[in-house]
Write a protein that binds this DNA or RNA. Structure first.
Lengths: 331, 331
DNA sequence: CTGTTAGCGCGTTCAA
DNA sequence: TTGAACGCGCTAACAG
């Protein structure tokens, strides 16, 4: 029979002091005799004592954990944003409780509620989340920061990528290179990044090229979608540049173009969005809009930490991160 | 002043029943009058009650959460393994508490101890972890499954990729294609996957080619490392095939080769390991050993769940997942 | 079927 | 400086 982990009471008993003294000694309070502290520490070491953080959280009404609710992201975007959040959280000694969503609205609501009592705040990225949804499902008083969404109210904040400006900058770049017959490969409808990039593309095409009905291929942010669009573009022949809503689709598109014997950027220029690490290693290097994904996560965490530290503060204005044009060989 | 979230006592009071009845009603116990249940549910809805899971965990001595300790992984390997774990955990209604390590041994120990009282079991992937380390730092009685490590003892299990067989299969493939002057780009020393792939490569080269001192480039699993090796290989001129310890380095290497005007696979064949999603979209498609990363995570979770459900069971033998050769255009 | 009591493991008043 | 008592929010055992 394996002996269960010792509790603070076992430590106190072994040290011959009260649990209160044991607690004080182990938490480094000053009002403890050196002798008492030593006895407690010796007892703790002997018993291999490990504090029960769940219990501690209950008494202190603080969990030192933040909940992260993300959609079912694929590939490097997911790992990069987690890395960014973790980098800052780790420095502050906070843990991350993760919830991956698979798109169901009710499921997201459930996940948010299920975090009550386990986290000090929430970082949420989900197309389902708007102000009403949050008010209906967020446990009262729990701070939350929404990524790529707009939210107001005390204890809430939001942060997003300036997708419109990014799309416009990319179209301007393609136009400057002499392209006019520019198509777009869209991301999944309903995803706010995807929708904003598409809208930005259309607006820029209308303004800079005078094309009010540019060609748009449906996509879902996966390589396969990019590949399908690439095949269609190769067959079409009338398009001289493609702007994909993310890098992953741009890469899939380039692969299909290469298969079809279409030269990039000679016959068709290809551009993406995000600047995932792989973008610079494909051949030719992918021209894209750089989003500092990890920084987005880190910055969101910082906003949340501020909300937790200073509850009841009024919502600061939305923060927007501007993406940056990175020109490589593909466009 | 924002009103804090209601507790079960508030619900009980509003419904005019005891907390015990409220608890029973909300948890769907059978011994409750329909009328009582309705009153409780109405009160809960009116007060917007959300249960405090931290408190519930304390009483039930069950957290419905598992801790995931991972090294500082980059790119798709990280997201894939989390996806695999989450897929199964989510189905079982479990949450994931994440800890990213940055390589310090003491830090890993701290992270493991910090999970006490917050999780029902641990999934650990770290080069620092061996049997002694785990015995010294794992809270007594906490089940744990180690990925890519070997562990024994009651309540522990391990799971790993058969890197040796994978490396051998790849060398055999390259040899069958007529290559003899084969180099390896190694992963970070100390990483068990990297070390095993390197050892497997050396053993296979000795056996199949009779080369007991094949060329090995140091690397760290990043694109940059692959790129550096690729430049060296282009300059060298005496190598006709490269086997990189992971796909990311293989892609970096291909980019450098292309820059230097070296044809792939004409002048130098390139192969990787992992089969990350991007592998099939680079040009030419990357020949690699497919590791079902998400399945590895999912399977590890299942092992852990079994350990949690049936504590005190003897350690089953290590499980090993065999990678599979995927031939594309690069080798 | 329901209410009362006890306790999960811990930090923290409040006296002594 | 120390210890006893209380409470965090919840569920389980035990009477009624």
């Amino acid at each position: 029979m394996t002996k269960a982990t010792a509790t603070i009471r076992d430590v106190a008993r072994a040290a011959g002091v009260s649990v209160a003294s044991a607690s004080r000694a182990m938490n480094g309070h000053s009002n403890v005799t050196t002798k008492t502290r030593e006895r407690v520490e010796a007892a703790a070491a002997a018993l291999d004592y490990v504090p029960h953080l769940g219990a501690r959280s209950l008494t202190m009404a603080k969990t030192n954990t933040i909940g992260v609710v993300l959609p079912d992201l694929f590939g490097e975007f997911f790992s990069e944003i987690i890395r960014g959040i973790d980098r800052v959280a780790h420095a502050g000694g906070l843990q991350l409780l993760l919830a991956n969503m698979h798109g169901e609205r009710a499921e997201t609501a459930h996940a948010i509620r299920a975090m009550r009592g386990r986290v000090d705040g929430l970082l949420i990225m989900s197309p389902d989340v708007d102000a009403d949804f949050l008010n209906a499902n967020l446990p009262r008083g729990l701070p939350a920061v929404v990524l790529n969404g707009h939210i107001t109210g005390v204890g809430h904040g939001s942060l997003s990528i300036d997708n419109g400006a990014g799309a416009r900058a990319m179209v301007a770049h393609l136009v400057a290179r002499g392209h006019r017959r520019i198509a777009h490969i869209a991301g999944p409808s309903g995803n706010s990044d995807a929708d904003q990039r598409l809208a930005g593309f259309r607006a820029a095409m209308a303004e800079l090229v005078g094309d009010t009905a540019p060609r748009v291929f449906a996509g879902d942010f996966t390589e396969a979608a990019g590949e399908a669009a690439g095949r269609a573009i190769a067959a079409d022949g009338g398009i001289d540049a493609v702007f994909a809503a993310n890098d992953v689709m741009a890469v899939g598109c380039m692969a299909a173009l290469a298969d079809a014997g279409v030269a990039v950027p000679g016959d068709v220029a290809v551009a993406g969005f995000d600047d995932v690490p792989i973008a610079r290693y494909v051949t030719p290097g992918l021209t894209t809009m750089r989003v500092h994904i990890a920084d987005l996560g880190a910055r969101a965490f910082e906003r949340l930490a501020a909300l937790i530290a200073e509850p009841g503060v009024a919502t600061p204005p939305d923060e927007t991160l501007a993406p940056e044009l990175v020109v490589r060989g593909s466009a």
